[in-house]
Design a protein around this nucleic acid. Sequence first.
RNA 1: GCGGGAGUGCCAGAGUGGUCAAAUGGGUCACGUUAAGGCCGUGAUGGCUUAGUGCCUGCGAAGGUUCAAAUCCUUUCUCCCGCACCA
Length: 1062
Amino acid sequence: MVDYNFNKIEKKWQKSWETKKIFEVGEKSKKKKYYVLDMFPYPSGAGLHMGHAFVFSLGDIFARFKRLQGYNVLYPIGYDSLGLPAENAAIKAGTHPKEYTEKSIANFMKQQKAMGWSYDWSRMVKTSDSEFYKWDQWIFLQMLKRGIAYRKKAPVNWCSKCESVLANEQVINGCCWRHEDTNVEIKHLEQWFFKITNYAEELLNGLDKVDWPENAKKLQRNWIGKSFGAEIEFSINNKPWKIFTTRPDTIFGVTFMVVSAQHPKLMELVTDKQKKEVEKFLKKIKSVSMKSMKDVENLDKEGVFTGSYAVNPMNNEKVPVYAGNFVLADYGSGMVMAVPAHDQRDFEFAKKYKIPVKWVVKSKVAEYTVIEKSLPKDKIAKLKDYGGISIIKEDKDWGKFYKVSVNLNNEGKFIKFLESNLLKTSDEGGAWYADSFTTTRAVVFPNKHFILNNVNDIQDYIKYGLKLGIPRNQLEVELQAFIDYGILTNSQGFNDLESSEAKEHIVKALEFKKLGKKTIQYKLRDWLISRQRYWGTPIPVVYCDKCKENVEKNSTELSFYDQESFENLKNGLKTVETRALNPEEKNRFFGNTIKGKYIKCVNKVNGEILFFEVVNVKIFKKLADFYKEKDLLNKTFSKEINSLSDLEDCYKFIEDYLDRINKNGLISWEIKRIIPGIVLISESQLPVKLPDKVKFGEGNPLTTNKEFVNISCPKCGSSAKRETDTMDTFVNSSWYYLRYTDPKNSRKIFDEKKVFYWTPIDQYIGGPEHITMHLIYIRFYAKFLKDLGLVKFDEPALRYFTQGIVHGSDGDRMSKSKGNVVEPLDTIEKFGADTLRLALVSFASPDSNTNWDEKTVLGSHKFLNKVFEHFSNIKYLKSSKADPRIESKINKLVKEVTVDIENFKHNLAVIKLRTFFDFMQDKNIDKENAKKFIVLLSVYCPFISEELWEKIGGKGFVSLADWPKFDDKKIDLKLEKQEESFEKTISDVLNILRIIKEKNGKDGDKVYLYVLPNELDIYNEENLSRRINKKVKVFVVNDKNKYDPGGKSNKAKPGRPGVFVE
RNA sequence: GCGGGAGUGCCAGAGUGGUCAAAUGGGUCACGUUAAGGCCGUGAUGGCUUAGUGCCUGCGAAGGUUCAAAUCCUUUCUCCCGCACCA
C-alpha cells in the first residue's frame, strides 16, 4: 500500500507555489481579466475558524477555476484589521492593539497558506496600515468638500463611568458592559455622518443590473425601503406642519395627530397649560429608553396632549395634537396624522386615550364567523353560496367555527339568510353578531342578535358570550384597525372610490390647494460613522475656535426662501453659481462675495444654516471663455438640472440672460461647503496617524492623549484640537477592493489605468450577514467614487454569492460555550487541507447552512487516499480511441462539472468526480484523460493534484494548466444506455443469486446469460465475471449450441438478457 | 408584527411537472477478504410479492390543477434567519 503523506505533499507544494510566485498577476496579460474577491477577514487572535475555511475555499475554488479557464485572475487578500474587537481583545490581553493585530495577521497568513488558497500575496493590504487608512482619510476629505460627510446631533450610548460612548453591542441590559451597575445614558452628541441617502435611488436602481441572489436583492430593496406617499400640510396654531403618510386615502379618518417625543420643535406646540404634563411625560420616556431593548420593544403606545389643535386640510376639522413615544423623530417629518380606524398603532393609542375612531374605509368583503351549533345542519352547506368558507377552529361544545367571507353585494342577502335560519332556542330569538367597524367580522351566536358598532358594544358582546359558556379566547372581540385597502366611506366627495384610486384623487386635491404633494420616502438612514474609539481611522479634521469666529465674522448672509435651492446647496449638488454681471441683479445667491470670504446661507423656512467658503471667483467677458475654462464646449447636457454643469448649460437657454452676459460678462463662484471651526487637514499632511502611546480604560484613548489632541490650526496657526472620533470600520471595507489593484501606490489612492483594467469585481463571495451593511456601503462608495471620476463602473460587484453557515455537529452555531467548535487547523493536521477543502464543499450546497460532520471528513479523506493509491499503481491505456466509453464519460464529466462550478454547486460536482473515479478505478484509462481528471480535481484539492500531476508527467503546475474542453459529440448517450443495461443486468443476476440462496440455502455457481445478437458487445464475460464474482458465460439467443436447460433464453428482451444460474 | 427561507428515506442532503421508491455520502445489515479485528471490496436497506417481476404506500398536513405532481396553485402547521413601533 502506498502511503498518502499529505503532510509532506502539502508543505512541498505550498513552498513551491510561493517561491515561484505563480499566483501573482499583472495588467499586461493578453488574457481577459477576471476579479474574484473574498471578503477580507477581520484577523482575530483565535485564528481561522471553520466559517473562514469554508468561504475562502469557495473563493479559491472559483479563482482556480477561472484561472484554469484561461483568465488573468486577480485574487487578492488583505486584513480588515482595524476595529473594536481588536481593541477590546488587546485591552483584555493587556497588549497594544497594534501588536495584537500584527500577531493575529501573521497567524492568519500561515493558516491561509496551509489551506492552499491561491492568493496573490504581493497585493496584500492591511487597513490598520497608515498607508491604507491614509486614503480613507483622503476620501473623507473629498466627501466633506462635497457635503457628503457632515455633522449632526445623534443619540449615542454613554457610560458615565467610562466617560465614553459605547457601541450597541457593549450595552448589556441597559448597562455598561464593564460597569454592570451603571445605566447607559442616551446622550445627544455631534457625530459624523455620510449622506448615503443622496444615493438611495441609485442604490435601488443598481440592483437591477447585478447578478446577485434574488433574496439578497430583496433584502437590500427592503432596507432602502422606498415608499410612495404624500406630504400633507396641517395647520397648527396658524403655522404649517408637514407630515408624511402612505395612506392619504384615510385622511378623512384623522382624529388626532402625534408628534415624536424627540421632535426638536416639540415645545413650540405645547401650550402653557400642558407644559407640566408634557415635561412629566418626557421624563418618563427617558427613563424607559434606558431600560433594556426588550422593554422598549414591548413598550406601550403612550402620549400626552400638547394643548394644540391641528386643522385637517381636507375637511378643516380640528383635531388634538399629542406627543407620542411611538413616532420616530427621524423618519418622515417626525409627526404623523393618526387614523385609528385604519392603523393599528393609532388604534391602540386612541383606545388608551379615548379618542374617537372614525371609519373611512370599508372592506371589500365582510367576514362572518358562524358557529355550527347556531344553524340547522342542512343550512350549513348553504353558507358557501354567499362567499368563501373555511373552518377556523373546532370546539367540542360549539362545533365548528366557520369563517365566511361575504362579498359586499351579497351581504344583505346573507344577513337575511342568517336571520331566517338561526336556531330559535330561547325567546330572545336567533342571534348573530355583525361586525365591528373595522374588520367587518361577525360571529353568529345561537341565542342573541348582536350588532357591534363601537367599543362599548364589545363589552356586551363579551358578557353575552361568556354567559353562553363560550371560552373567552374564542370570543373574537378585540377590535382591530382595518388596515387593508378597501372602499372609501365617510369621505365626502371621495366615497365609493377604491383606496388606491382615492389616494391619487386626494393627493391631487391637496396639490390643488397647495397643501400637499406626492412624495417618496426611504427607510435608509444616513450612515453614522463616528466611533469614540482608538483602533480606527482618525478623522482628519481639526477644531479651531479662532477659525470659527473668523468664519462667522466674515461671512455674508444670504437668505433663502426657496427650499429647493437650499436643499441643492446642502446636498452638494451645486458648487458653482454663475451670474451675469448685472448691477440690477442683487445678491441673487452669493452676492458680491470674494475669494477667501464666507457665505452664510440661512433657510428662512426652517431656520437651517449652511456655511460656504468661496474658493475662487472669476470674471469672464464672454460666455465662451467660461465654457472654455470649464471645459464645457463639447459637452451635451440633459435639461434637468441635477448638477453644476447642468446648471451652467441651462443658462444657454435663457436668451435674455445670454444677452446680458454678452453685454456685461459673467462672474463665476466656486464654493465649498464648510462647517465653521472645522478645518481640514490638507491632503499633503495625510495620513493622520494613530498615536502609538495611548492609555486604555479611561474613555477614548485619543481624547486623553494630549500630544495627539493639541495641534496648531493648519489654517490660522492658533491652538486647536484634533477630532478624536475615529471612523466606523465599514469605511475601510467599502473600497479596499480598489486598493488591491495598486496596493503600494503612495502618490495616489490608485492608478486609474490599473483600476480601470481590473474592476469591477466579477465574482464576490461572502456571508449573508453583510447584505444590509457592507454591501450597501460598498455600493454607496462606488457611486461616490464614480461621481469623482475615479472609477468607471456603477456597481462594484457584478456577481455575488452568499455562502451558508457551517454549524457545529449538533446543528448549533459553533461557539466555545457550546463546545462544538472544530478548528480547521486540527483537521488539516489530521487529514490534510485537501481533505478539509473537499469535505467542506461535500456537506451540502454551499449556499445553504450545513452542519459539521466528522464522517464527511473521513469519507473525503478515504476518497483522496483511494485516488492517491490508484494513481500510484496506475497502468495507462495507450490511447482512449479504442474505447469510446471513456471519451463519452470524460466529456460528460467536464461538461457537467464546468456548469456546476460556475453555479457553485460543488456538492454535485464532487459527486460526479467521485462517480467518474469509480469508473476509472474499474477500468484503466489513458494518460490524457487521466490528466483531465486531475485538472478538474485540482480546484478542490490542489495539493494532491499537483503531486499527481507531477507523477503523471504534466507540464508545469496543474494550478496553471488548461481547463479541459469538452466535445458534445463525444458524449454518447447510446453508450450510457448500454452501460445502464449492463448495470441493470448485474443487479438482476445478483438479485437472482440472492433469492436462490435464500430459498435453497446454497449459492449458484455458474451464470449463463442469453443476449440479443445486437447487444453482444455490451456484455463482456470477463467484466461480468469480475463484477458478479461468479463464472459467467454469455450466449447469443439464437446460438444453437447454447447451454440452456432452463429455457431462459426466451425471456431475453432488449436491454435485458435472459439469465440462468446453476 | 413585517420581510426572507426551509420542511424529502435511519441521518445529512440532491432533485422543482413524466426518465422518481427518489442522486450522493454516512449509518445499519449481509457477504467477500483476514488467524481475527480494522482497513478495504461487493451488495442490501418503505411495505408486500417474485428466479431478475409486479403491486401498494410515500417527499410536513389537507385540498386543488393535470393524462401525469416531491416538483404548480390554495389553505394550514412547524422550524430557522433578518428587521423591529418606517405612518
